[in-house]
């Protein structure tokens, strides 16, 4: 176990060293969520005039949780991309020829993605704060939003990594990631409250862990602590994470090359 952690830590360092040499990547990783906030906040500003929209809320405040979780989705789903390159340039094979546990490849990447996601989430909440959004549940609420992001991003990263381990062609990888991401995003409560969408969509959205991540985060921002919503979110996300880990474990026990 400690061996696995030593290896995973080394591979996590490797990703941070990559980032260090990619100033554009840092810049866009950090600015992209702010752009989402600005765009969505203004684009749908009049959505709150719709009947059924939580009263007394401006759209930006409503949207903040959606943008946070959407960024988590994007981060997690893109998490496997560098592994496609590792397979191509032989680095993966080189690692597989060392005594290192292959789980360290997965874990090293997850550590990095989690760190990036937490930094982005925090930054987004800070920017939203400057734009007037207040988290009703206060600083502990911010901590809780971070925890939700962290747990959700792990499952998403595992999906992406499993796909990267399984698909040789970059084209197929991006196609599948696209096909998976769209329904996850649109069949969720990211953009509008679910009481404003058709029944079938609401039913589908309720099965989507993303919806629960958003609803829990949103309630922390709009109204404070709602333990029922939080409990449901953790339940769904934990189930999602475990299921994805099981899939990935199966993949890792078979040949990777």
């Amino acid at each position: 176990m400690t061996g696995l952690l030593i290896e995973a830590r080394a591979l996590t360092m490797r990703w941070f060293w990559h980032l260090k040499r990619e100033p554009y990547n840092i810049f866009f990783t950090l600015t992209q969520p702010m752009i989402w906030l600005l765009l969505f906040g203004n684009l749908f500003e009049r959505a709150r005039e719709m009947p059924g929209f939580p009263s007394g809320t401006d759209y930006l405040t409503f949207m903040t949780a959606g943008v946070v979780v959407m960024t988590v989705l994007g981060n997690g789903m893109a998490g496997g991309i560098p592994l496609l390159f590792d397979r191509e340039n032989g680095f993966l094979e080189k690692v597989l020829a060392t005594p290192a546990n292959r789980g360290s490849i997965l874990l090293g990447r997850i550590f990095y993605i989690v760190a990036m996601t937490l930094a982005q989430t925090l930054l987004m909440l800070a920017v939203a704060y400057l734009m007037g959004v207040r988290v009703r549940a206060g600083l502990p609420g911010v901590g809780m939003i971070l925890l939700i992001s962290l747990l959700f991003t792990i499952g998403l990263a595992v999906v992406s990594l499993t796909l990267a381990f399984s698909l040789r062609e970059h084209g197929s990888f991006f196609a599948i990631i696209g096909v998976l991401s769209l329904p996850l995003f649109f069949l969720s409560s990211a953009l509008i409250p679910l009481n404003l969408v058709p029944n079938w969509m609401r039913a589908a959205a309720m099965l989507n862990p993303m919806t629960h991540a958003i609803d829990a985060s949103r309630s922390l921002i709009l109204s404070g602590w709602d333990w029922r919503l939080l409990g449901r979110a953790f339940g769904y996300i934990a189930a999602f994470d475990l299921a994805m880990f099981a899939l990935c474990y199966r993949r890792l026990t078979r040949p990777l090359l």
């Binding site: 360092m13 490797r14 990559h18 340039n89 032989g90 094979e93 080189k94 060392t98 290192a100 360290s104």
Partner: peptide, 23 residues
């Protein structure tokens, strides 16, 4: 390996460090 398999985004020293830690 027959093909070059260093990590092009790391420095030489970093490449060796990561590899050594895997052992």
């Amino acid at each position: 390996r027959q093909e070059i398999s260093v990590d092009p985004y790391l420095s030489a020293r970093e490449n060796l460090w990561v590899y050594g830690r895997l052992f």
